[in-house]
Computed example of a mutant assay.
Amino acid sequence: MNPLKIIFTVCTNNYLAQANVLAKSVKKLAPDYTFYLFLADEFSPEIEYSKLENINFINWQDLPIDCEDLKKKFDVVELSTGIKASCFKYLFSKYEAEIVHYFDPDIRLFSSLNHLDAYFDQASILLTPHIFNPIKWQDGSPNENLFLRHGLYNLGYLGLKKSEAAAATLDWWEDRCLKMGFNNPKYGFFVDQLWMNYIPLFHPKETFIILDKGYNMGPWNLHERSLNSKNDSSFMVNGESNLVFYHFSSYNYKQHEISRHYRYTFASNPDVKPVYDIYQKEMIEAGVEKFELFKWAYTKKKSFLKKFLKK
């Protein structure tokens, strides 16, 4: 009997177009996975959720955590990231999953996940670093200090196989995220991500750091990665590896440029424009112009972090 395998994401209503693009790529390239979406928002009567292809929705308030507390103290980014560990635990428990991958909603698969799953033969925790090589220091972002503030590993992706190490990691990570999942690098908090620096130390034999540059390519590592087209929908990274998934972090389909946060542009990195052209087209087809208008249902009390720090 094949092990139950799950891919999930977490998002709010205004990110449902991105999540729909991800879900369609999962259906095409990882059909042996069941796709779940935890909605970190209130369900809206204006959205026909059943028409969103390949997505099984779960209300984040079904998680066995103090949701009212999180609504009061977290903003939209903190809430959406802070519940990830709880989502993993829910999926492992409720569906008796053996393998669970998390992907941010603004990721799209471009190749099969077969090789990714093979890494579980070596470990039960899979991580992808932001960068592998030094960045030439220059004006603008990213420079290496960015990852000292935000974490060595990008938690837009995390893969876990059912194991004692994974369970221990989730218990510890959940506790930290729910209590201290703030977005304030000045005080040493960066939502769920910064905590993961410790995992290769806490569980060295059960952690596998994926060194293949085809995994989690994104706008922060373009100094070390370039794309070549294999055909209209598949690509090679540095002429060596298949592009497995690309992270379209902070992409704005209206401006159609790589990112508002990083120095790279289509002028400096024209090789990546084809994947952004694909993504822009698919986002529009998925209804981004409609979904982006939805407002988050909750409002954080902005004084909460200061009160927490004074404890």
Rank of each mutant, 00 (worst) to 15 (best):
M1Y: 11
I7N: 01
I7Y: 02
F8H: 08
V10Y: 06
T12I: 08
L16C: 01
A17E: 01
N20W: 01
V21K: 09
L22M: 05
A23N: 03
L29D: 05
D32K: 12
F38Y: 07
L39S: 08
A40G: 06
E48I: 02
E48V: 03
N54A: 10
I55C: 04
W60Y: 14
D62M: 07
L63Q: 04
P64M: 00
D66K: 07
C67G: 12
E68W: 04
D75Q: 01
L79Y: 05
T81A: 11
I83Y: 09
K84Y: 09
A85I: 13
S86L: 02
S86H: 06
S86Q: 08
C87S: 14
Y90F: 15
A97L: 13
E98D: 15
E98P: 11
I99L: 11
H101E: 10
I107D: 05
S112T: 14
L113P: 07
L116A: 07
D117C: 10
D117I: 04
A118I: 00
Y119H: 15
D121Q: 15
A123R: 09
A123T: 04
A123H: 10
S124Q: 07
I125G: 12
T128E: 15
P129A: 12
I135N: 11
I135V: 11
K136I: 11
K136P: 08
K136D: 14
W137V: 10
G140C: 12
S141E: 09
S141M: 13
L146Y: 15
N154R: 02
Y157W: 05
K161F: 03
L170T: 09
D171W: 08
D171C: 00
D171S: 14
E174D: 04
D175Q: 05
C177Y: 02
L178A: 05
M180Y: 06
G181M: 05
N183R: 04
G188P: 01
F190W: 15
F190N: 14
Q193K: 10
Q193Y: 08
L194P: 08
L194Q: 08
M196L: 14
N197L: 09
Y198S: 06
I199L: 14
I199M: 10
K205R: 14
K205L: 10
T207I: 01
I210S: 01
N216Y: 11
N216I: 09
M217G: 12
G218R: 07
G218W: 04
G218K: 03
W220L: 00
N221G: 14
H223A: 06
R225Y: 11
S226M: 06
L227D: 04
N231S: 05
D232T: 03
F235T: 00
M236H: 07
V237F: 03
V237G: 06
E240N: 10
E240P: 08
S241P: 06
N242L: 13
H247P: 03
F248L: 04
F248I: 06
S250H: 12
K254P: 05
K254H: 10
H256C: 02
I258H: 02
S259N: 05
H261P: 03
R263C: 00
Y264G: 03
Y264R: 02
T265R: 01
F266H: 03
F266I: 00
S268T: 15
Q280N: 14
Q280L: 01
E285D: 08
G287N: 09
E289W: 04
E292D: 14
E292T: 13
L293R: 15
L293W: 00
F294P: 12
F294W: 07
K295M: 12
A297M: 07
K300N: 01
K302Y: 00
L305R: 08
K306H: 12
K306G: 13
K307R: 13
